[in-house]
C-alpha cells in the first residue's frame, strides 16, 4: 500500500503543474474565509454576509463543505492528467515492464485519490473550525461537533468525483478530452432529466426517482445547497408566503449510490486497462 502511494507521489512530486494546481486549490479553500468580509447594501440596508449566520456552528459544516466541493474541479485536472500523462509519456507501458501489475497501477492512482480527499477534508475541517471559532454565536462542544456528517459526505463526494475522473482518463487517455467528456456527461444528465421531467414522465416524480441514481446527480445530492437555509433567504421567502420544507441532512441513499459508482469506476478502470494491449 505505502509502496504504491510512494510510487505515485514520486511521479507527482516533481511535476510543476501538479504542484501549482494543488497549491491553488488549497489556497482557494482558505479563501472561504474571505466571504466573511463581503459587505453590500441592498435597498438602503447594509448586509454583512458573516452576520447571516453562515459561520455558525453547526451550519458552517454544511456551508463550507458545499462551497469547498465546488473547487474540486481544480484537483480533477490533476487526477485526469496524472493518468493521461502515463499514456502520452508511454510510461504506463514502462511501469508494467518494470514489474508493476495493472492492478497495482490502478490501485496506486486510487490511493492517491483517497489521499487527496483526506487532505482536502482535513483542510476544510481546520478552516471551518477557525472560522467558526471566530464568528459563531454558540461555542459549546456538542454544537460544534453536531452535523459533522457533512464532512464525511464531503470526503465521499470527492472520492466519487475523482474516481469518475480517473475512469474517464483511463478510458479516453487524453486529459483535455476526458475533462470535456466529463462536462458532456454533466449536460447529458441534465438533458435526460429535463426530458423525463417535462416530457416523458410529465407531472410525476419518476424523473427525480431515476436521476438520483446518476453519478453526478448523486454526488450533488450528498450535500444539498445551503442557500435556502440562510436566515436572510428564509425571511424573504416567508414574507412572500413561501416556505422551504427541504431536508438538508446528509441522506443514506446518495451515500450508497455514490459508493457503488466509485466501485464501478475503479473496477471499470482496471477492467479497461486489463483488456487493452499497450
Amino acid at each position: 500500500m505505502l509502496r504504491l502511494l510512494s510510487i505515485e507521489l514520486h511521479k507527482l512530486r516533481f511535476s510543476r503543474s501538479t504542484k501549482i494546481i494543488s497549491a491553488v486549490y488549497f489556497i482557494l479553500i482558505t479563501f472561504i474565509a474571505l466571504i466573511a468580509s463581503i459587505e453590500f447594501s441592498f435597498g438602503g440596508v447594509n448586509f454583512r454576509i458573516a452576520d447571516q449566520g453562515i459561520f455558525n456552528f453547526p451550519f458552517i459544516w454544511h456551508f463550507n463543505t458545499y462551497i469547498a466541493a465546488i473547487l474540486k474541479f481544480f484537483l480533477a485536472i490533476v487526477i485526469v492528467s496524472m493518468v493521461s500523462n502515463e499514456y502520452s509519456f508511454r510510461t504506463l507501458k514502462q511501469n508494467l515492464i518494470d514489474g508493476l501489475s495493472k492492478k497495482e497501477f490502478i490501485l496506486s492512482k486510487f490511493l492517491t485519490v483517497l489521499l487527496f480527499a483526506v487532505i482536502s477534508t482535513l483542510f476544510v475541517l481546520i478552516v471551518s473550525i477557525i472560522l467558526g471559532m471566530s464568528f459563531s454565536d454558540k461555542l459549546e462542544w456538542d454544537v460544534i461537533f453536531y452535523d459533522l456528517d457533512y464532512l464525511g459526505a464531503y470526503f465521499l463526494k470527492l472520492v466519487g468525483f475523482f474516481s469518475f475522473c480517473l475512469f474517464l482518463a483511463v478510458l479516453i487517455k487524453r486529459s483535455a478530452f476526458a475533462l470535456g467528456f466529463l462536462f458532456i456527461w454533466f449536460i447529458l444528465e441534465q438533458i435526460t432529466y429535463a426530458m423525463m421531467k417535462w416530457w416523458i414522465f410529465k407531472g410525476t416524480d419518476i424523473a427525480d426517482t431515476i436521476t438520483q441514481f446518476y453519478p453526478l446527480e448523486a454526488m450533488s445530492n450528498l450535500i444539498k445547497e445551503p442557500w435556502t437555509r440562510l436566515g436572510l433567504v428564509q425571511t424573504a421567502a416567508s414574507q412572500l408566503g413561501e416556505s422551504f420544507t427541504k431536508n438538508y441532512e446528509v441522506q443514506l441513499l446518495p451515500i450508497i449510490v455514490v459508493s457503488v459508482w466509485t466501485v464501478i469506476f475503479i473496477y471499470g478502470a482496471y477492467a479497461l486497462l486489463k483488456k487493452r494491449d499497450l
Partner: peptide, 17 residues
Amino acid sequence: HEALKNVGAIIEHPNFY
C-alpha cells in the same frame, strides 16, 4: 509481474517522465 522485477527490458523508445 513479480518475475519482471528480475528482468530488465527496454522496448521501442525510451519511456520516462
